[in-house]
Amino acid sequence: MSLETILSIKNLNKNYGRIQAVKDLSFDIQKGNIYGILGPNGSGKSTTLGIILNVVNKTSGSFSWFNGNTSTHQALKKVGAIIERPNFYPFMTATQNLELICRIKGVSYDKIDEKLQAVNLFERKNDKFKTYSLGMKQRLAIASALLNDPEILILDEPTNGLDPQGIHEIRQIIKSIAKNGTTILLASHLLDEVEKVCSHVIVLRKGEKLYSGRVETMVASNGIIEVKTEDDIESVVNVLKNYHETASVNIDGDLIIIQLENDISAATLNKYLFEKNIAVSHLVKRKPTLEQQFLDLTNNN
């Protein structure tokens, strides 16, 4: 079964005078996944979202929605997006604000309660918007973007400025929306967010794509091994640097961190150290975090 491509971006460029905000960017969004566009501020994430939503003009390149069978204008009726801070009327209730949006979008009111339930605001639907916390305001914005039952929901920095509880709630809501079959594309500068929420990641730096693929593939490369020893750390580091499977060795407090060239077991390294008469008190193999991979990508290019 061929996967349905919701969005395809080809060689997209955007220049602001002499600044190139997006450089030759290409990627596809397939139905049913949660994609994270990850990059530091100024990496071109918001510009890219602006282009595909027709609010920013591209300089060159192309993008097409829904296998290219739909004009952008028609396609955007099947898209829900929050790329600005939401504008709701402070003295109107959640329900009244959503009724207004239904009228603008030409959608019937009968979706309102269902969408408020989806973002855990049903109990507060008759409260004025001005009484809402920042997290609740953001959840109402998500409800408003869901009113037209979009096939894809696009979110720009959905947890920006929220407290830990608010962040957790938004992330849970995003996952539950995706479980119901809505494809999600979110931009974030938070590695933790992408690692916890997304199935796929597109890493941008200065408008260029450094990586795109499944999150677990990026995280899984060949792993790292942590070693603690009672022996002299410097001499152990030298022994490890000479080991043929070592990509790099770093010291972190009393831990020695070995990044591996190839996927070897902890036992294999333990045997090598034993043969070199090095006694270890701790030896554990770990997957590198997305953070480590991201730092490696953004530093090395």
Rank of each mutant, 00 (worst) to 15 (best):
A220I: 09
G181F: 03
S176E: 14
K111M: 10
Q165F: 06
G223M: 06
N120D: 15
T59V: 04
N270C: 05
E193I: 01
I256S: 00
N41R: 06
I51W: 00
F27T: 11
N300M: 10
I37L: 13
D232V: 14
L140R: 02
Y211V: 07
I83A: 10
I6C: 01
N301V: 13
T159F: 03
L153T: 07
I202N: 08
E123C: 12
L100V: 13
L146W: 00
P288H: 02
I142N: 03
Q30V: 15
E169M: 01
G50F: 02
N41I: 02
A178I: 04
N120H: 14
G44V: 02
W65I: 11
H200S: 14
L204G: 06
D156Q: 03
N13T: 06
L190A: 11
V79P: 05
L273Y: 01
V194D: 08
N222E: 09
S60Y: 02
N160P: 12
K31T: 05
T48H: 00
K175C: 11
V237M: 08
G106R: 05
L53K: 08
D113T: 10
Y109E: 13
G36S: 11
Q117T: 15
D156H: 02
L185I: 07
A220N: 15
E4S: 12
S248K: 00
N57L: 11
D296W: 01
S235K: 14
L260F: 05
D156L: 02
Q20Y: 01
N238T: 12
I167T: 04
L260P: 10
Q292D: 12
C198I: 07
I6H: 01
E193G: 00
A178H: 11
G223F: 03
I167S: 03
K105E: 10
K45W: 00
V201M: 11
G39M: 06
P288Y: 00
K111L: 10
I101E: 08
K285E: 05
D254G: 15
E169N: 07
F122N: 14
M1R: 11
N15K: 12
I278E: 11
L49D: 02
K111Y: 09
K285L: 08
I19C: 13
E123L: 13
